[in-house]
């Protein structure tokens, strides 16, 4: 900074700490609720400091679920969420890499037509084509399956654009050199393009994993069997049950479990996350 104003710097720190406290408050309340027994969670006022019932609640949430429900915990839902998130992230990256490669490195008929077709998907979020997409998936017999959960979400204009951008910055000399050495297109793709876009792939993976894990509307529509529910859906169902018999300790533990994987990804891969976020928006 250009001038030294200790008072203003001090004030800035105070404001930032206040901001952090405000942002973190809901998470703290959730953590506290997840560490108290059920009986404590029905007495007003609710606690503001953690109790000693954390691991018992963890066991209930993972293996038993709410009392009076199916008796199954959320372990299966966590697995479904993980699989769906991984399938969406990997699927999006693979098909976008391939199509960006074709569009940047090949001259072929309808090239621009394909490009615009991919571009249009930007303008068609799931929310505006809910019913007809549901019908398509139902006709294809993909309801209640992992394919139905992931494939309709893997077309991605943003990822294709990002890889196109990355490929355009790769020097032409590399392709010329590869050709002189006798490499065909796929060899060039695997041995040069993919390794050179490694960090971009990782950054995109972080963003897409969070995107996939947090999907809600789509799984809600196409799954009807409890076996296929994702953990994010599980929370909503528990909220509905909470109107009769609130077991906030279990609900908040489930919420904690549901947000832990994406939060860990954001915190431990922060630089990749920030990179992915800024790159996909440009």
């Amino acid at each position: 900074m250009v001038e030294n104003r200790p008072l203003l710097t001090f004030f800035s720190h105070i404001m930032l700490i206040l901001g952090v406290v405000m942002i973190a408050f809901p998470i703290w309340i959730m953590f506290v609720a997840a560490s108290h027994p059920e009986t404590r969670m029905t007495q007003v006022p609710l606690p503001l400091l953690p109790g000693g019932f954390f691991f018992e609640n963890l066991d209930i949430a993972l293996n038993k679920g709410l009392s009076g429900q199916s008796g199954e915990g959320v372990a299966r839902m966590l697995f479904n969420s993980l699989l769906m998130a991984l399938m969406i992230a990997v699927g999006k990256i693979v098909i976008s890499l391939l199509s960006a490669f074709a569009i940047v490195y090949f001259r072929f008929p309808f090239r621009m037509f394909f490009f615009w077709m991919i571009f249009i998907t930007l303008m068609l979020p799931v929310e505006v084509r809910i019913l007809p997409t549901y019908e398509v998936v139902a006709n294809l017999g993909m309801l209640d399956s992992y394919w139905g959960l992931s494939i309709p979400l893997i077309a991605s204009a943003t990822a294709t654009f990002m890889f196109r951008q990355v490929f355009l910055t790769i020097p032409d000399e590399l392709l010329e050199a590869a050709r002189i050495d006798g490499a065909g297109p796929m060899r060039f793709f695997w041995d040069i393009l993919v390794p050179m876009s490694r960090t971009n792939i990782a950054a995109l993976f972080v963003i897409l994993f969070i995107y996939g894990w947090n999907q809600y509307l789509w799984p809600l529509l196409i799954t009807s069997e409890p076996q296929m529910y994702t953990v994010v859906m599980g929370i909503k169902q528990m909220l509905e049950a909470a109107e009769q018999a609130p077991e906030w300790n279990v609900i908040m533990m489930t919420a904690l479990l549901a947000m832990l994987p994406p939060i860990c990804v954001v915190i431990f891969m922060q630089s990749l996350f920030v990179r992915g976020l800024t790159e996909t928006e440009k």
Binding site: V94, S99, M117, I118, T121, R129, E135, I151, A155
Partner: peptide
């Protein structure tokens, strides 16, 4: 792959 997914799950439903 990208075009098939786009056609089946985006363009057609829209």
């Amino acid at each position: 792959p990208q075009i098939v997914v786009t056609l089946v799950f985006f363009i057609w439903p829209a």
